[in-house]
Amino acid sequence: QLNLPENTDDWTKEDVNQWLESHKIDQKHREILTEQDVNGAVLKWLKKEHLVDMGITHGPAIQIEELFKELRK
């Protein structure tokens, strides 16, 4: 059970990391997002292209984008 703020805009980069870990996103990809200071407010704007530009491969980038879309519903 994750204990994250209800509003994703309030998520810290550590919260984002924890959420991605719960969805089995590889540590190396989570570390990239942490290094790039991606918090919840930033995550909602990220598209696959942004994630790929940061060095995340296409498969996980699509997965992260789709997971966040599902979360926002």
Results as ranks from 00 to 15, higher is better:
1 Q>A: 03
1 Q>H: 11
1 Q>G: 07
1 Q>L: 05
1 Q>S: 10
1 Q>C: 02
1 Q>R: 04
2 L>N: 03
2 L>W: 07
3 N>L: 03
3 N>D: 04
3 N>S: 09
3 N>I: 03
4 L>H: 05
4 L>K: 03
4 L>T: 07
4 L>D: 06
4 L>R: 04
4 L>F: 09
5 P>K: 05
5 P>M: 11
6 E>K: 05
6 E>L: 04
6 E>P: 07
6 E>S: 06
7 N>F: 06
7 N>A: 11
7 N>V: 09
8 T>H: 11
9 D>C: 10
9 D>L: 10
9 D>K: 08
9 D>N: 11
9 D>S: 10
9 D>H: 03
10 D>K: 08
10 D>A: 04
10 D>P: 00
10 D>G: 06
11 W>N: 08
11 W>A: 00
11 W>L: 03
11 W>V: 00
11 W>D: 00
11 W>T: 06
11 W>H: 00
12 T>N: 12
12 T>R: 06
12 T>Q: 06
12 T>F: 00
12 T>P: 00
13 K>N: 08
13 K>I: 08
13 K>T: 08
13 K>D: 05
13 K>M: 07
13 K>Q: 09
13 K>W: 05
14 E>N: 10
14 E>L: 06
14 E>D: 09
14 E>I: 11
14 E>W: 09
14 E>F: 05
14 E>R: 04
14 E>K: 06
15 D>I: 09
15 D>Q: 03
15 D>M: 07
15 D>P: 00
15 D>F: 02
15 D>E: 09
16 V>D: 00
16 V>G: 00
16 V>N: 00
16 V>F: 06
16 V>A: 01
16 V>M: 07
16 V>L: 07
16 V>K: 00
17 N>C: 11
17 N>R: 07
17 N>H: 10
17 N>D: 05
17 N>K: 12
17 N>P: 00
18 Q>Y: 10
18 Q>F: 09
18 Q>A: 07
18 Q>R: 06
18 Q>T: 09
18 Q>M: 05
18 Q>S: 07
19 W>V: 03
19 W>Q: 01
19 W>L: 06
19 W>I: 08
19 W>M: 09
20 L>Y: 01
20 L>W: 01
20 L>C: 04
21 E>F: 05
21 E>L: 04
21 E>Q: 05
21 E>M: 07
21 E>H: 10
22 S>V: 07
22 S>A: 08
22 S>F: 09
22 S>P: 01
23 H>V: 12
23 H>K: 12
23 H>I: 14
23 H>N: 03
23 H>F: 12
23 H>T: 08
23 H>W: 05
24 K>M: 09
24 K>L: 11
24 K>P: 05
24 K>I: 09
24 K>Q: 11
25 I>L: 06
25 I>D: 01
25 I>S: 01
25 I>H: 05
25 I>K: 00
26 D>L: 02
26 D>N: 10
26 D>W: 06
26 D>K: 13
27 Q>A: 08
27 Q>Y: 13
27 Q>S: 11
27 Q>K: 05
27 Q>E: 11
28 K>N: 10
28 K>V: 10
28 K>E: 13
28 K>D: 10
28 K>A: 08
28 K>P: 12
29 H>V: 12
29 H>C: 13
29 H>Y: 08
29 H>W: 10
29 H>R: 05
29 H>S: 14
30 R>N: 01
30 R>M: 02
30 R>G: 02
30 R>C: 11
30 R>K: 02
30 R>Q: 07
31 E>V: 07
31 E>F: 05
31 E>S: 08
31 E>C: 07
31 E>M: 10
31 E>N: 05
31 E>R: 04
32 I>M: 07
32 I>R: 08
32 I>C: 11
32 I>T: 06
33 L>C: 02
33 L>N: 00
33 L>Q: 00
34 T>C: 05
34 T>N: 12
34 T>G: 12
34 T>D: 06
34 T>R: 08
35 E>G: 06
35 E>M: 06
35 E>P: 01
36 Q>N: 13
36 Q>S: 12
36 Q>D: 08
36 Q>H: 14
37 D>L: 15
37 D>T: 12
37 D>N: 14
37 D>W: 13
38 V>G: 06
38 V>K: 03
38 V>Q: 04
38 V>D: 04
39 N>F: 01
39 N>Y: 02
39 N>D: 11
39 N>A: 04
39 N>Q: 10
39 N>H: 08
40 G>I: 03
41 A>Q: 13
41 A>Y: 14
41 A>D: 12
41 A>F: 13
41 A>K: 12
41 A>V: 09
41 A>H: 14
41 A>P: 11
42 V>K: 15
42 V>P: 07
42 V>T: 14
42 V>R: 15
43 L>N: 02
43 L>V: 13
43 L>E: 02
43 L>S: 11
43 L>T: 13
44 K>L: 10
44 K>W: 09
44 K>H: 13
45 W>G: 15
45 W>H: 13
45 W>L: 14
45 W>M: 15
45 W>P: 11
46 L>I: 08
46 L>V: 07
46 L>G: 02
46 L>P: 01
50 H>L: 02
51 L>Y: 02
51 L>G: 02
51 L>P: 03
51 L>C: 03
51 L>T: 05
51 L>F: 03
52 V>E: 15
53 D>Y: 10
53 D>C: 08
53 D>T: 10
53 D>K: 13
54 M>R: 12
54 M>G: 03
54 M>D: 04
54 M>K: 13
54 M>E: 04
54 M>W: 15
55 G>S: 00
56 I>V: 03
58 H>N: 03
59 G>P: 14
59 G>E: 15
59 G>I: 14
59 G>W: 13
59 G>C: 09
59 G>A: 14
60 P>W: 14
60 P>Y: 14
61 A>S: 03
61 A>K: 03
61 A>L: 08
61 A>D: 03
61 A>N: 02
62 I>T: 15
62 I>Q: 15
62 I>S: 15
62 I>G: 15
64 I>T: 03
64 I>V: 03
67 L>G: 14
67 L>C: 08
67 L>N: 13
67 L>R: 14
67 L>S: 07
67 L>M: 02
68 F>S: 11
68 F>V: 11
68 F>P: 07
69 K>P: 04
69 K>N: 04
69 K>L: 12
69 K>R: 11
69 K>E: 14
70 E>M: 07
70 E>P: 12
70 E>Q: 11
